[in-house]
Design a binder for these strands. Structure first.
Lengths: 163, 163
DNA sequence: ACGATAATGATTTTATTTTGCAACTTCCTG
DNA sequence: CAGGAAGTTGCAAAATAAAATCATTATCGT
């Protein structure tokens, strides 16, 4: 993790930006919540725990900066807020998401999956693909299990009290 | 087109909503700009031409309603505005988009392309896919042509004035 | 340590979207 | 075809997110 921060620091420097304490604190929060999909406000509140003097504007600026450097990706799941997601180190493409319409959970898929599709797009639409955003909406395995269990429960109830 | 409005009217009725003149005007604007990706404000201004007395809030409410009914999809290309895109009639899935990072043009892909990928997701992640969002970011054929032309121009200039 | 340059935090501003509410429509019922 | 409940509208105000402003402060190479 330290080495990861070091590398981000180098990225900043090579674009002649500085790794200030505020920026470092922000990056640390992102690293500690790699699985989550935090909004700017979320990040702000978490960073504030470590560095209470930080301002919201700085968090916005830092996130925008990290987005420029392709360290994070700015995503939008349809609620009005932008969320920020660390990009896998060295990944050329952004990873995919599974959004559960039951419980709202967001899972990640790191595999590419789109190689063939991109080839088709490049060939048939003459579109030179640089990046992509892919999100599936549906029902996650947890909610499928839950529903199964409830169905089973429901079934047994219906057996007891036939209406 | 009239029949399409008729069908949307039925959809509204079956959810016990009404097709008011304002809603009809809004739907007509959407149909007439099927290729575009209008923001709420865009729609508002266009509807106002036909029905000047309409309020912005009504447009927002209508778009939200049509989104609920899956007549339109609400999309977000990363600028701060939501855009509304008519769904192909009968399409189970939302179509895909090609966003050009040079000129900002947004093209649509109606083909599915994701059948295989969805199978993998359902199998390997036990995720029951209901819908998807796929957007490619890259360079459209128009800008590729443009760049080619400019390169050629540049080449010939360089031949004339070698530095 | 110094000084140019970059970054910060508090606050204000902008832009988009949502909400509250009184007035107005719509459409069903008799 | 009048009456009335339910649904809808337009306006204005409020809520939200994000960006911009600006005086102050920190950073880093020399």
């Amino acid at each position: 993790m330290e080495s990861r921060i070091e590398r981000i620091k180098k990225q900043l420097h090579s674009a002649s930006y500085k790794l200030t304490p505020q920026r470092e604190a922000t990056v640390r929060v992102l690293l500690e919540h790699e699985e989550d999909h935090l909004s700017a406000e979320d990040v702000y509140l978490l960073v504030k725990e470590k560095a209470p003097e930080i301002g919201l504007a700085t968090v916005y600026r830092t996130l925008e900066l990290l987005n420029e450097l392709k360290v994070v990706d700015k995503i939008n799941f349809g609620d009005g807020v932008s969320r920020y997601d660390l990009r896998q180190e060295g990944a050329a493409h952004f990873h995919h998401h599974l959004v559960c319409i039951e419980c709202g959970a967001v899972d990640e898929i790191q595999e590419d999956l789109l190689e063939d599709v991109e080839k088709v797009v490049e060939r048939d639409w003459k579109f030179q693909v640089k990046d992509h955003r892919l999100t599936f909406h549906g029902i996650c395995w947890r909610c499928q299990d839950k529903t199964d269990t409830e169905d089973a429960k429901q079934d047994s109830l219906e057996k007891q009290h036939v209406e």
